[in-house]
């Protein structure tokens, strides 16, 4: 298996599709750290923007929550780093939690209270840890931006081969004719080679957001080209108002 990550979503994350999960008593979600670190009624913002002992305690408890989320993320992505030992894994989680704490504190003023503060905090640790795991997983892999497309198509059975081949050829043609060289290279790196978007952004000295935008435009152009050539049904909105 390559370091491509999870297969793009057939798993539904939508509301109501999780298996029997219910909201629980808020007190039951407290961690074992300080007794009230995860509690719903804690005034995290107030404590973190105060001074003295209250702030110190809040920072310490917050760091514990971030380490927990970072460890959770390392465990989920462990398959990408098969040679990572238990001690190194914990070091990685702690370092990511440190980084996440810095980012979070820098964005405290953007907390809108739309989610629990602890949930809001978790995501910083998850993002930071996922970035670091992906970066390490790809550290020894050279990423050459390629224009090359192999048209070997995997199909389920002979009856679907012709159709699948036709669409694959049409997509390849669309990529050649409708995309700029840069768009084509980014689309190939991200979607064909499976390079994670944050890893590619770091290598190219750009941002995840900028690469996703490039990909978004490339996909729109491919779809428009396929519709014009009769390979996708017309009338499906794909281009917004542009």
């Amino acid at each position: 298996m390559s370091a491509r990550g999870p297969e793009p979503v057939s798993v539904a994350l939508a509301a109501g599709t999780t298996s029997g999960a219910t909201t629980s008593d808020p007190d039951s979600s407290t961690t074992s750290i300080s007794g009230r670190a995860g509690s719903l009624d804690r005034d995290w913002l107030g404590e973190l923007t105060s001074s003295g002992a209250a702030r110190e305690t809040a920072l310490r408890d917050l760091h514990v929550l971030l380490v927990k989320a970072a460890r959770h993320q390392v465990a989920r992505m462990r398959g990408l780093l098969p040679r990572l030992g238990a001690v190194e894994a914990d070091e990685l989680a702690n370092a990511a939690a440190d980084e996440a704490l810095v980012h979070l504190l820098g964005r405290l003023s953007t907390f809108e209270g739309r989610a629990r503060f602890t949930t809001w905090a978790y995501k910083f640790a998850i993002l930071q840890t996922a970035n670091e795991v992906r970066r390490r997983a790809w550290a020894s892999t050279e990423i050459a931006l390629s224009d090359h497309l192999d048209l070997a198509v995997e199909v389920d059975g002979p009856e679907s081969r012709a159709e699948a081949n036709e669409l694959a050829h049409a997509v390849a043609a669309a990529m050649t004719e409708a995309l700029t060289t840069y768009q084509r290279r980014i689309a190939i790196a991200l979607l064909v080679e499976g390079v994670p978007v944050d890893v590619l952004a770091e290598r190219l000295g750009t941002t995840r957001g900028a690469l996703y935008k490039t990909l978004h435009v490339a996909r729109s152009r491919i779809r428009a080209h396929l519709v014009a050539a009769g390979h996708l049904p017309a009338g499906i909105p794909f281009g917004g108002t542009a």
């Binding site: 298996m1 390559s2 370091a3 491509r4 297969e7 793009p8 892999t141 050279e142 990423i143 050459a144 390629s146 090359h148 497309l149 192999d150 048209l151 070997a152 198509v153 995997e154 199909v155 699948a164 669409l167 694959a168 997509v171 390849a172 990529m175 689309a187 190939i188 979607l191 064909v192 080679e193 499976g194 390079v195 990909l215 978004h216 996909r219 729109s220 491919i222 779809r223 396929l226 996708l232 499906i236 909105p237 794909f238 281009g239 917004g240």
Partner: peptide, 23 residues
């Protein structure tokens, strides 16, 4: 490079043609 080596597999074709509106 990865094991994908530029292959336009069915999954890749599907992903390349995804409708990603709204932005």
């Amino acid at each position: 490079m990865t094991s994908h080596q530029g292959r336009l597999s069915r999954d890749v074709v599907e992903s390349l043609t995804l409708d990603t509106e709204p932005w």
